[in-house]
Amino acid sequence: MFTAEGPTVRELAVQALSSTERGYDLLAPTFDHTPFRTPDRMLDACEEALAQTLPTPPAAGLDLCCGTGAAVPLLRRLCRERVTGVDFSAGMLARAAERFRTAADPAADPAADPAVGPAVDFVHADVRALPPALHGSYDLVVSFGAFGHFLPAERPGFFAEVHRALRPGGVFAFPIGAPPRLSSPGWWAAAGFDAVMRVRNALWRPPFVMYYRTFPLGGVRADLEAAGFEVTTQALECFGRRPDGSPNWRLLLARRPA
Rank of each mutant, 00 (worst) to 15 (best):
F193L: 06
F239R: 00
F158G: 03
N201E: 06
D126F: 01
A227C: 01
F122L: 11
N201W: 14
A190S: 12
F208G: 05
R242Q: 13
A129N: 11
A107C: 09
R80A: 00
D121P: 07
H135V: 04
E98D: 15
C79Y: 01
P73Q: 06
P131N: 04
Y212G: 09
C79K: 06
L27T: 06
T214S: 08
D109Q: 08
L43I: 11
P257D: 02
P131A: 00
A45D: 06
F2T: 08
P35C: 05
L17Y: 14
R242I: 13
A94E: 09
V196G: 11
E11I: 07
R77I: 02
P55M: 11
H124N: 08
S89G: 07
E81N: 08
V171L: 05
V72L: 11
P118V: 02
D40Q: 13
S18A: 14
R155I: 01
A49F: 07
A165G: 08
F122C: 02
R99V: 02
W187L: 06
P168Y: 08
L26E: 04
E21Y: 05
T8R: 01
S19C: 09
C46V: 01
F2E: 06
T53Y: 12
R76Q: 01
Y211W: 09
R242E: 09
L27C: 00
T3K: 04
G67K: 05
E154N: 08
L64W: 09
T233N: 04
S137R: 15
D87F: 05
V162L: 06
R256S: 01
G170W: 12
H124P: 10
A235T: 03
H33A: 10
G69W: 02
R221Y: 07
A111V: 00
L166I: 05
Y138L: 03
G192N: 06
G218R: 15
A49V: 00
E161D: 07
P206K: 07
G69D: 02
R82S: 04
R37L: 07
C238N: 12
W204N: 12
Q15N: 08
F122W: 13
L182W: 11
R76S: 01
A71H: 03
F208W: 07
A173H: 03
F122M: 01
G136S: 03
V127Q: 00
F158H: 09
N248M: 09
R22S: 11
V86K: 06
R164T: 14
Q52Y: 13
P7A: 02
A226I: 07
D63N: 05
L217F: 09
G91K: 03
G170H: 07
P118M: 05
L93E: 05
A71L: 05
S89K: 07
R80H: 03
G61A: 02
R167E: 06
P206S: 09
Q15I: 10
